[in-house]
C-alpha cells in the first residue's frame, strides 16, 4: 500500500524520501550519466559504469554494450575479457569501437544510443572534450530516452561542465581491506555524487565488490574491516528491477 501511495505522489515526495535515506541512486535506464575520474582511476570508473548497468549475465537479454574510444589515445587500454567475465559482464556482448576524432566519437555514440539492440553506450573520453557541449549531451539524453539504453560518458581528467546528464559521478579507487599475507583485497571505490536531477547531490559512498552476490555493495558504514557475511545485504543496483520497471520504484529498491 505504501508503495502505491508513494508512486502516485510523484517526484517531489520521492525526492524527499531520497534525501532522507542514504541509498545510492542507480544508473537508470534511458538516461545519460557522466562519470568523472582521473586517468589512473579509469579501471574503477569502467567497472562502476558496467556494474551499475544492466549487463550482468541475464541470458535472455540480447542488448549489447558499445564501448567507444579514441584510437591512438595515449596510454590506450583495451577491455580485458577475463576481467570483465570475473565482474559478471559477458565479454561477448561488448562491441569495441575506435574513432579518429572527437566528432566521430560523438556520432558513433549517438548512433549506438539510437539503436534498440544496444543496452549500454560507454563513451571513453579524456581531457576537455570540447565537442561535448549542452547540445551534444541533450542529443545523447534524448536518444537514450527513446531507445531505453544507458548512455555513460566517462570523462577522464576533465572539469565538470553543464550538461543534460541525469547523474554525474566522481569515481576514484579506494584502498581495499587487505587479505592475509598483505594481498590486495576485493575491488573498492569511492563514488561521489556530484549532481543528481532527482535529488540532492554531494554525498559520498564507499563501494566494495561483494563476490558472494557478484555486485558492488555499499560499504560506507563498514567500520569493522572484515569480509562481508553472505546474505546480509541488498544488492546495490536493482538490475532486474531496472530492466523491467525502471523509474521510481527501482530507485527505492536500490
Amino acid at each position: 500500500m505504501a508503495d502505491k501511495v508513494f508512486k502516485l505522489t510523484g517526484s517531489a515526495a520521492e525526492r524527499l524520501a531520497q534525501a532522507a535515506g542514504s541509498e545510492l541512486p542507480a544508473l537508470e535506464c534511458g538516461r545519460l550519466h557522466e562519470i568523472h575520474a582521473s586517468a589512473d582511476d579509469r579501471a574503477a570508473a569502467f567497472a562502476f559504469a558496467l556494474c551499475g548497468s544492466d549487463l550482468r549475465g541475464e541470458p535472455g537479454k540480447p542488448g549489447a554494450a558499445v564501448f567507444v574510444q579514441m584510437a591512438r589515445a595515449p596510454g590506450r587500454a583495451i577491455p580485458a575479457g577475463d576481467g570483465l567475465a570475473l565482474l559478471g559482464v559477458p565479454p561477448a556482448r561488448l562491441l569495441f569501437v575506435e574513432t579518429e576524432n572527437e566528432l566521430d566519437l560523438l556520432r558513433a555514440g549517438l548512433e549506438a544510443a539510437r539503436c534498440p539492440g544496444v543496452e549500454l553506450v560507454l563513451l571513453d573520453t579524456r581531457g576537455s572534450f570540447a565537442k561535448y557541449d549542452l547540445t551534444a549531451s541533450r542529443r545523447l539524453a534524448l536518444a537514450a530516452e527513446q531507445s531505453r539504453c544507458r548512455v555513460i560518458v566517462l570523462r577522464q581528467d576533465a572539469e565538470p561542465r553543464p550538461s543534460a546528464a541525469q547523474t554525474r559521478w566522481a569515481i576514484s579507487s579506494a584502498p581495499s581491506h587487505a587479505l592475509e599475507a598483505n594481498a590486495p583485497g576485493s575491488p573498492a571505490m569511492e563514488a561521489t555524487l556530484l549532481r543528481w536531477r532527482n535529488g540532492p547531490a554531494g554525498r559520498r559512498w564507499r563501494l566494495e565488490w561483494d563476490g558472494d552476490h557478484g555486485t558492488f555493495r555499499d560499504a560506507t558504514d563498514d567500520t569493522t574491516h572484515r569480509a562481508p557475511l553472505p546474505g546480509t545485504v541488498v544488492p546495490l543496483f536493482g538490475m532486474r528491477e531496472s530492466a523491467e520497471g525502471g523509474g521510481p520504484e527501482h530507485t527505492r529498491a536500490a
Partner: peptide
C-alpha cells in the same frame, strides 16, 4: 530477432564509416 538485426545494422554502418577494423569484438 529484431534487436539482433538492429545491432547488425549498427555494426555495418559503423564499419562502413570508420572501417571494419575499428568496430571489433572480443
Amino acid at each position: 530477432e529484431d534487436l539482433t538485426d538492429d545491432l547488425a545494422a549498427l555494426i555495418d554502418r559503423l564499419s562502413v564509416r570508420l572501417g571494419p577494423n575499428r568496430v571489433r569484438r572480443l
